[in-house]
Write a protein that binds this DNA or RNA. Sequence first.
DNA 1: CACAGGTTACTTACCGGACGGTAACCTCCT
DNA 2: AGGAGGTTACCGTCCGGTAAGTAACCTGTG
Lengths: 212, 212
Amino acid sequence: METGRSGRAPRPQTRARREEILKAAVATFGAKGYHKGSLTEIADQVGMTHAGILHHFGSKDALLMEVLEYRDRSDVADLPDHHIPGGAELFRHLVRTAFLNAQRAGIVQAFVVLSAESVTDDHPARAFFESRYATLRGEVARAFRVMCQEQGINEPDTIDKAAASILAVMDGLQVQWLLDPAAVDLAEASEFAIEAIVAQVLSPRELPLGRA
Amino acid sequence: METGRSGRAPRPQTRARREEILKAAVATFGAKGYHKGSLTEIADQVGMTHAGILHHFGSKDALLMEVLEYRDRSDVADLPDHHIPGGAELFRHLVRTAFLNAQRAGIVQAFVVLSAESVTDDHPARAFFESRYATLRGEVARAFRVMCQEQGINEPDTIDKAAASILAVMDGLQVQWLLDPAAVDLAEASEFAIEAIVAQVLSPRELPLGRA
DNA sequence: CACAGGTTACTTACCGGACGGTAACCTCCT
DNA sequence: AGGAGGTTACCGTCCGGTAAGTAACCTGTG
């Protein structure tokens, strides 16, 4: 019933040990996915048995949730003053993130695999990704509104589509890049696509595509 | 040893039975992913035991490969004359596909889940998706080259980035749409993003993003 | 046309392995 | 003393795959 609440002192090394486990879990869930990645494989990486992991996290589901929150924390941590930028600065931040991601395939893979896996039935990470995307879309949309306001533009529908598209293109490029890093330049392509979408929001142009 | 090679006639109903199984497999792999989706669950949908499925397809891996090829066949089948369009027509086709996909969540989910799952270690679908993306990027790039040539533009790097981005945004939007269909309009957002990227290729513009 | 023989299309039964989770136990640290 | 941080052992479940058996079906032969 109790989860360590009002329990006695945890040892000082425990915090580091848990973080070690979380890193191993990122590696394993990234390499195998959640369902195929086993607690035993994670445990091996930190020199433990799988029962030891369960002692720390209670269940595999709980470990997954902590992994996801752990990564979110790390992402926010590298923001100056933990402040989410607005306007054009947000898009510059997204481009910087893409360049950063191009050098940490392991973490990228974990999020790619888990986010897609989360759309399956009753997946424990589903609620996490649902609210994560909702939040991110909201922030991108807010940045768009700031930029549009500065230029006297107002197209809410366009902004919503663009916000989803920005996140979508970053994710989709990650999949292609992970499948064949030589064929896709994650950073450059992300930058190009983000600029293309931002440009279309700020000064939409008719296209030679027409209706079919 | 022999796999029906030069064996006697298969029964006429067998073809339909196999297609039934493939459809059930799409549903199950979409709903659960490849690793968590079991042969028993597929078998239940067609009123069989899991051993019956193995009789038809040999192994779970082989079934997966047939599922992927089966879907590819269906996609090509709805192209007029089985001819891959070039130039602007290809982009119109992609937009139409997005509108079509918005009404068949099951199939979309199967491809989203399987493509992301395929980036994991030793996944049986990895080679399939690797070559699939390479082919699709090539076709989109070809369409871009046709359009650029018509307008006297020549930027191979841009075209490669744009081709990957087009596919990426379509895939990424599918993930968000599956997680929350009410929050994302798959068809409209795909159309918007495709137009934005095509526009940026045909008449690139400097942006207010600058360097960070 | 009848009737074998062989093949197809399954089922039932079983195997070996992997998995998450639990319980009991030990042993340090505080 | 007693909890924190493990280990070992075990359980029940589920999975893909195989082997053996069976009924239905097709086909070549007389």
